[in-house]
C-alpha cells in the first residue's frame, strides 16, 4: 500500500468544459483514493490554478472554450515538468500524434471506462515518480531500482545495465505483457532487430536473480512468441 499511498497523494489537475464530466472524473478518482483533485473549466482557469497549486499531473481536454488543450499543454509544461494525459472526444490519429509530439504521456478518447482511466493515471504516475519508490516486491524477491539490485534471501544481487533497463520496462507495465520488440528497444535502442537471442539470455539471468526456481518462473512469465510479463506482489 506504500506505493499506492504515495501515488494517490499527488495533486491532479482536471481540465474540461463539461461540468458533468468533470464531476464524474473527480468522483472516479476520489473513489479510488486520490485526495488532491483540482478542477478547471477553461484554459484561463487552468493556468491560474496550475500556478497556485503546482499540480503533479494534469488530465486535460483538447477542446476548451477559450483555447485548445495542445496550447494549454505547452504552457503547463513551461511552468512545471509534470505528466499530462489528454482525455478528449477528438479521436483522430492526427490529434493523437500531435498530442504525443507535444509531450503528452497518454491520450484517451471518449467514451472511456472508469477502470481504464484509473489504470492509465496510475501507470503514468508510477512511471513519472518511480524513483521515489525504490522497492518493488515480487513473489520471491524485491527489486531496488534506486540501487539497481535484487534482494533475495537477504542477499543483495547487483543488476547489470541491460537487466536494469529490461526490468524497468517490465515494471512500468507490471501485470501486462511487454512485447519482445518493446523490450529489445528498451535495452538496445531504436533499431532492435536481431537481439531476440540476447534478450532470452538476459531474461534467463534476470530469472536466476529474482526467481526461486528460474526453470519455473512465477514473477517473470513468458508468453511464447509474444513477450514477457512481470507480476508484482501487492503490498
Amino acid at each position: 500500500m506504500m506505493e499506492d499511498d504515495y501515488l494517490k497523494n499527488k495533486r491532479i489537475l482536471l481540465v474540461d468544459d463539461e461540468q458533468e464530466l468533470l464531476d464524474m472524473v473527480t468522483t472516479i478518482l476520489k473513489d479510488d483514493g486520490y485526495r488532491h483533485i483540482i478542477v478547471a473549466k477553461n484554459f484561463r482557469q487552468a493556468i491560474a490554478l496550475a500556478k497556485e497549486h503546482q499540480p503533479q499531473m494534469a488530465v486535460i481536454d483538447v477542446m476548451l472554450p477559450d483555447g485548445n488543450g495542445f496550447e494549454l499543454l505547452k504552457q503547463l509544461k513551461n511552468d512545471g515538468d509534470y505528466p499530462v494525459l489528454f482525455l478528449t472526444a477528438r479521436g483522430e490519429d492526427e490529434d493523437k500524434l500531435k498530442g504525443f509530439a507535444l509531450g503528452a504521456d497518454d491520450y484517451m478518447v471518449k467514451p472511456f471506462l472508469p477502470q481504464e482511466l484509473l489504470f492509465r493515471v496510475k501507470a503514468i504516475l508510477r512511471r513519472s515518480y518511480k524513483s521515489e519508490n525504490p522497492l518493488v516486491k515480487l513473489k520471491h524477491s524485491e527489486i531496488d531500482f534506486a540501487r539497481a539490485e535484487v534482494i533475495k534471501d537477504d542477499c543483495h544481487i547487483p543488476l547489470t545495465a541491460k537487466e536494469y533497463e529490461l526490468l524497468s520496462a517490465l515494471y512500468r507495465n507490471a501485470g501486462r505483457i511487454v512485447t519482445i520488440d518493446a523490450l529489445c528497444e528498451a535495452a538496445w535502442g531504436d533499431n532492435p532487430f536481431g537481439y531476440e537471442n540476447s534478450l532470452m539470455a538476459h531474461i534467463r539471468r534476470i530469472r536466476e536473480k529474482i526467481e526461486q526456481n528460474p526453470s519455473q518462473p512465477v514473477s517473470l512469465v513468458t508468453f511464447k512468441g509474444l513477450g514477457y510479463k512481470l507480476i508484482v506482489e501487492e503490498r
Binding site: 463539461e18 464530466l21 464524474m24 472526444a89 471518449k110 467514451p111
Partner: peptide, 9 residues
C-alpha cells in the same frame, strides 16, 4: 462522444 462518456461512466 462526450454524452456517451456520461452514459458509459
Amino acid at each position: 462522444r462526450t454524452p456517451l462518456s456520461t452514459v458509459v461512466i
